[in-house]
Amino acid sequence: MTPAVPATLAPRQDRSARWLLIGLAVMLTLFIVVVPLIYIFWRALSGGFAIFAQNILAPDTLHAIWLTAAVAVVTLPINLVIGIAAAWLIARFTFPGRKALLTIIELPFSISPIIAGVCYLLLYGRQGLLGPVLAAGDIKILFALPGIVMVTLFVTGPFVAREVLPLMQAQGSEQEQAALTLGASGWQIFRRVTLPNIRWALLYGAVLATARAVGEFGAVSVVSGAIRGQTMTLPLQIELLFNDLNTVGAFAAASTLTLIALVVLILKTVLEGRTR
């Protein structure tokens, strides 16, 4: 961190420019970031708290909250395991195709989620690559929980690895090798040496992945089939309520996601300090 140019040394014109720029930055941020955020709560509560509660407790919205929580609960452990496995594999071993594997792991970050959804439909859809096989086996992936979970995994996959891998690489494997020489088993090494070292980065990655899993819209909207009261996650429910012209209901649903987003922001600030 470099300290700012001391204000006293800066000529007068610098100082006025400085306050002009700060003012401009604050005003713009207020208009494009802060107001849209506050507006969500303002609209959600515009009819009073009773109407807000009524909107949240509407059966379809409650079901959407439940489904969103279910998706988050199912994807989190998978993301943790795969994230750690990927980081361990790439940080601790050298093998041909290592760089290519990392590129593939990070690929979902460069493919827009809506395209991911399209890919899933082209694979599992009725006329998709595996469509006939699934139909013959009567396996339902699309327009049901498995499809939503899988496409969410696609979108959130790289988060944990991206946080844990750089840390594992920076820390090196000396401690783990020492544990190995002392006769520790693989699980013991992981549990006693690796995990304590990466725990904050792991938590950080888990928070980012879960936040994304809860809020994902594009990818899920393609594979969910949007069946009312069945395959609507909370973000999809917002769109449904909005299209039904139930704007207050949409804002009420949105306010729950916004609260989660604010919690995530706070956790992020706390964890960023710890992972450094």
């Binding site: 849209p36 969500i40 809020g215 819209f217 769109e239 909005f242 987003a261």
Partner: peptide, 8 residues
């Protein structure tokens, strides 16, 4: 979430 941003 982007849907929330879009709505607002």
């Amino acid at each position: 979430p982007t849907a929330v941003a879009g709505l607002s």
